[in-house]
Amino acid sequence: MDDARRHNTPRVLQVITHLALGGAEEVAISLAEALQHDVAFTFFTVQGGPRDEIGREFYRRLQACGIPVHSGTVLPMKLGGALAAGFQLRQLIWRLRPDIVQLHTEIPETTFACAALFGLPRELRVIRTIHNTTLWPAWARLGAWTERRLSGAEVVGVSQAARDGLHRFQTAHRVPPAPSRRSQVIYAGVHRSGGPAPRAARPLPPSGPVRVLFAGRLEPQKGVDLVPAIVEHAATLTSRPVELHIAGAGTLEPEIQRWVGTQATPWAVTMGPPIPNLAGALGEGRHDLILMPSRFEGLSLIAVEALLAGVPVIATRIPGPLEVFPDGYPLLAEPEDVPGLAGVLARAIEDLEPLTAHVVSLRSQLRDRFSLEAMGTGYLQLYRQPRPGAAQ
């Protein structure tokens, strides 16, 4: 019997898509860091090892905790990758015999469903952490197939909206939803209680540039395709100098790069790769505003990190983030509303100092709900519960 079983330590296999930019990956790794002394974690990355600086930083963080990392396949999911990674995951499960397999987002869920085709231990607990409100957007049929094979799993939403999104998909595809006793919400944690105080508003002379940041995956979900029109409109509504930086990677990168190279607004616009340790950069005051025109989000770690750092966020009024922003938060617009988002952005630029002071005052409302300690406590309690249906 190994040490984890001898000391009654839960053995949890975390399954993530890859070691690359993603909120689900950040949640899984932060959770492992928070509970490294209470839980024996192992990671399985479906799509292989780190491919960029964000991935390398994730890997270094897991190494620092002594957490083993196993890689899946570089094959595309639709070209046999799901089955290949599923078989590897099945082999790993039989070798490690974890108490719990925790799945983060659709690719790990599909991989686990494929692993189950080859046979898995009957006593295995499965926990799904739901990170988004719109599920299987391009893979509805595959999603329905996977959902039916995960019908016995326990469900954790990173927000109420994320849990509701899963329920909507299951209902639409006639999949019985997880019963309430096996479904709950545990908010993602992004900071340690008692961390550094948020910065004060950066005093700006009239000629000083306001530094705006878009950070995230360059995909339609994040609304990055709306950024050019938002910026071009906002630039006509304020004369204050602005520096906009777009940090990220994704399928829309060539399109955004072309716009950055040809845009004719007075703003200084630059583009670069994802920012490692974005929370640290926000806390150091490198950016004054965050632009987040997302179409859908499960919660938005960037919004939480920014508000806790005292950085105002211009965002859309969508489920998930609405559980982050307090009632009456002044910088929200409707999704897809380019003039509305541009107007809010211009107002934030013009009124930066008072808005920053207002955001700093909100920190006490957010710090406990989105702390790593609160997330860790919630999951540790869940891990230590008996498997549903097990003899008491």
Rank of each mutant, 00 (worst) to 15 (best):
V69Q: 12
V69K: 09
H70L: 09
H70P: 05
H70N: 09
S71C: 15
S71T: 15
G72V: 06
G72M: 01
G72S: 09
G72D: 05
G72A: 09
T73E: 08
T73R: 03
V74L: 11
L75Q: 09
P76I: 05
K78L: 15
K78D: 13
K78W: 12
L79F: 02
L79D: 03
G80R: 03
G81N: 08
G81E: 10
G81W: 05
L83G: 01
A84M: 01
A84I: 02
A85K: 00
A85Y: 00
A85L: 02
G86F: 03
G86T: 02
Q88L: 13
R90H: 08
Q91Y: 05
L92M: 04
I93N: 05
I93F: 07
R95Q: 14
R95L: 04
R95T: 10
R97V: 11
R97G: 04
R97Q: 15
R97K: 14
P98A: 14
D99Y: 00
I100N: 06
I100M: 03
I100S: 06
V101N: 00
Q102M: 02
Q102I: 00
H104M: 05
T105W: 14
T105L: 15
T105D: 15
T105F: 13
T105Q: 15
E106I: 09
I107F: 02
P108F: 01
P108L: 01
E109W: 02
T110S: 11
T110W: 08
T111L: 00
A113W: 07
C114Y: 12
C114H: 05
C114Q: 08
C114I: 03
C114T: 08
L117C: 14
F118G: 12
F118K: 04
L120G: 08
P121R: 11
R122E: 06
E123R: 14
L124T: 01
R125K: 10
I127H: 05
R128K: 15
R128Q: 12
T129K: 08
T129L: 08
I130P: 01
I130L: 04
H131P: 06
H131M: 07
H131Q: 13
N132E: 15
T134F: 11
T134V: 15
L135C: 10
L135Q: 11
W136S: 05
P137Q: 04
A138T: 14
A138Y: 15
A138G: 11
